[in-house]
Design a protein around this nucleic acid. Sequence first.
DNA 1: GTTGAAATTAGTACGAA
DNA 2: TTCGTACTAATTTCAAC
Lengths: 222, 222
Amino acid sequence: MSEISRNGVGGGGQSGRIGIGLELDDIHMKILEVLRENGRISVAALAERVGISRASAYTRFEALRADGAIKRFTAEIDHVRAGLGITALIFVTVRQQMWKQFRAELARMPEVEYCAITTGQHDAMIQVRVADVAAVHTMVTDRLANIPAVKATETVFILDEVLKRPYVLPSDHEHDRDRDPGQGRGRSARRPAGEAQGGDVPLGKMRFVGAAEGRAALQKDL
Amino acid sequence: MSEISRNGVGGGGQSGRIGIGLELDDIHMKILEVLRENGRISVAALAERVGISRASAYTRFEALRADGAIKRFTAEIDHVRAGLGITALIFVTVRQQMWKQFRAELARMPEVEYCAITTGQHDAMIQVRVADVAAVHTMVTDRLANIPAVKATETVFILDEVLKRPYVLPSDHEHDRDRDPGQGRGRSARRPAGEAQGGDVPLGKMRFVGAAEGRAALQKDL
DNA sequence: GTTGAAATTAGTACGAA
DNA sequence: TTCGTACTAATTTCAAC
């Protein structure tokens, strides 16, 4: 229980890339599948569900944590129940070469649950959870607007969260019903999906939005 | 252990609203704080960290699950490690009164990790995790575009996930260092944050985007 | 990588404050 | 309600195969 034992780099930095650790095989994937749905399952029960022995389950479990494939275990909490009924998305345009400052300020905002740097019209999207709409206004108006790095914002409210999956895994994509243990369809059997048979697309109703001002290369600059 | 014992409605539907269950006090909040950071902590250790007895911890733990405040426990998985290195946001404009179909189709797409209905220019935002950029293109072009409910899409790529907090809680907002156990600042002591002192906002560089076509009221129609 | 043991710990039920 | 204890059942660790 308690802390991680032999975890040198595992759940380290915010978005730190770690060198390629272990090769994830089918059993690893199955473990992840079980764990994302029931993070509190015992390793013994996990072993049974995956079809391996207890000792192996412990070994693999530890390996996945140490490797960083499993970053942490968390409880999914009902925001409304917790008193934060309002969720909003704020799209931010960041002034060039002020990303570092933007990031630093962001870390100081506890109401921010998620922030991603995106291509497209805006530079970043942040998701906030607050108690009421006034708090959104306060946040955008007082906090964000006062950050020099923030050039402009655009706010939308989330009316309903239609679906929220724990974590998507490659095994979800290919709907294998027939299990072939000896086949080893681990990392390689995933078909590239590049052979798009897209011939009967109705019209050009979709739009891909590339990076504005060639900002894409700037992500390391943070 | 496994399933919830006295859970009548608890972790029921996707977005089902449940009647007000238990009043969450400070200790409940502390439990949630610990659990969102370490979902696999033992109840004994949890009791110690929160400062209550084991028996109480078990009772409250169960109550939080039964109430639905804790929806589930999950493992945070490294998508890149799992083989899904590409994350994209797809903003979808949905044809009116075809929400039900849109939702149904969405449920059949395993690469969708999150979908929210929003105000603003678009109607919904979906986040997908796939192996490569080609898969994004395939998905938008073949899958989404072929859904009648989808009027238009706009896709942006996520270049970096700056921060991802397990779950935001009200207690994060007010940085209480001084603990006053007898004061009971549970749900009520949260200040409305409405008194915005926003006087020195530089300029009108922020924008609030309301619902398009009065769609806001339509969310129950799904 | 697997099985089977021992030691520890977790979960439950009860009474008392 | 909450706490503390004892009891039962489960898990984890460690050994040998």
